[in-house]
Amino acid sequence: MIPFDFEYYKPATVAEACETYRTLQEQKKSVVYYSGGTEFITLARVNQISADAVIDLKGIPEVQVLEMQGDQFIVGSAVTLNQIAESRLFPLLAQTVRGVADHNSRNKITIGGNLGSRLSYREGVLPLLLADCKVRVAGGMKGEGERVVSLSDVFDKQLNLEQGEFLLQILVDKEYLDLPYVHLKKTKQSKVDYPLVSVAALVKDKEIRMAFSGICEYPFRLGEIEEVVNNTTFARKEQLKQVVGKLPAAILDDLHGSAGYREFVFRNVVQETIDALEWAQK
């Protein structure tokens, strides 16, 4: 049971959602966009989040889309992780999200919720960062318009949308869907756990692209790391040392794994990934 009262709205259109948000804002109410709701309920139950109102986006048809449209793979933000995993239209994304939480939870967790999570892992974003995808965003305080932007423009460490905006759809070009790929997730003990290290990688134009979660405070893709990974003049040991040196933030050091252990796992995972994709570089 959630210990505080809030208003619940489930709009049927983007325009209704935008109008509802603005009206609630004018009434000085705090508003949370809601989709799968697993994180909201978990945090609200223990008073770590509060809201005067939630706007449930699941009734908007555009956020439920999961299909090819021309040369683009379209994923609505309220599509569940299991729907993505089962569709296998983008195998790397399917495999990556299949590693998030447990099967029952993935029947509720949505890709939009995963990208906007307060937790640091947000593994669903890794393949999307590699695929140079775009996102369609709606809402905001200025009008009811939608905008299409590169994911990298609105995702830096976390999803950074403007006030009142919400993620409507993710757009992935067809050319990225069937590229050679690897996803590895290492946990401390249990299969269902937060990652010590999670890596998604694919090969585009004979270059390996890699994005990581779990090793630092936020998920990331870094060109400097990819330069080292694709530099075949390095001996492997030196290559791994260089990759560790390029990490954008301190290695996480917590109950799930010490920094030293995570670094050890990270080196192994990077090596395993390069080994698995070397054939596709030739």
Binding site: I41, N82, A101, N104, S105, N107, K108
Partner: peptide, 22 residues
Amino acid sequence: NGDCGACTVLADGKPIHSCLSL
């Protein structure tokens, strides 16, 4: 908290944690 599955019900045939649904 969605960890144990003891509250599992089926929603449109899909198993979910009823503690994590409104």
